[in-house]
Simulated assay, not measured.
Amino acid sequence: MSKLLFLDVEATGTEKEDRLIQVAYKIEDDQCNKLFKPPVPIKLSAMAVHHTTEKMVADKEQFSHSQTKENLLRYNNEGAIFVAHNAKYDLGMLAKEGVVFNKHICTMKIARYINSDNRFENHQMQYLRYFYGIEIEATAHDAFGDILVLEQVFAKLYDDFVKKEYGNSNGVILDGVLNRMIEISMQPSLMTSFNFGKYNGKTVEQVASIDRGYLEWLLDMKTQKPEGEEDWIYTLKKVLKKI
Rank of each mutant, 00 (worst) to 15 (best):
K88C: 00
E230W: 03
Q31L: 12
L148Y: 03
E205V: 10
K16W: 13
D159T: 12
E165L: 04
Y234C: 02
I233C: 06
G213L: 12
T12E: 07
P38S: 08
A143E: 00
K242Y: 05
M1K: 11
G98V: 13
L240Y: 10
Y132G: 02
D59A: 06
D117Y: 03
N102K: 15
E15K: 15
K222W: 13
V9Y: 01
K34P: 00
I210D: 06
M181A: 05
K60E: 15
L236N: 01
G171C: 07
V149N: 00
D117P: 01
Y75D: 05
M93P: 01
Y166I: 04
N76I: 04
N76C: 07
F101T: 03
L20P: 01
A155T: 09
N33W: 02
I42M: 06
G133M: 09
T68A: 09
K198H: 04
E230C: 03
L72R: 04
I21L: 10
T192V: 14
E15Y: 09
N179Q: 14
N76H: 05
E227P: 01
N170L: 15
L73R: 01
Y127A: 04
K26H: 12
T223K: 10
F82R: 02
L150N: 03
A84N: 04
T192M: 13
M221L: 15
E227K: 15
F194R: 10
A111N: 00
L7Y: 07
V149Q: 02
T203F: 10
Q62A: 12
F63W: 05
A24I: 06
M125D: 01
K109A: 03
D160T: 07
D8Q: 08
R112I: 00
L236H: 01
G98I: 09
Y130S: 14
A138I: 00
S64C: 08
Y132D: 01
G13M: 05
H51L: 12
E137D: 14
D18Y: 10
Q67F: 09
S66F: 04
D29M: 08
K55Q: 15
M56H: 05
S116L: 10
R74M: 11
F131I: 00
T53M: 05
V149Y: 02
K163I: 13
I173E: 14
E10D: 09
P39Q: 11
Q224A: 15
K238V: 12
V149H: 03
I147A: 03
E229S: 10
F120Q: 07
Q126G: 01
F144T: 00
I114C: 07
V57L: 06
P188T: 14
D211Q: 14
Y75P: 00
I134P: 05
H123Y: 11
Q152V: 03
N33P: 00
K156W: 05
N86T: 08
A46Y: 02
M181F: 08
N77M: 12
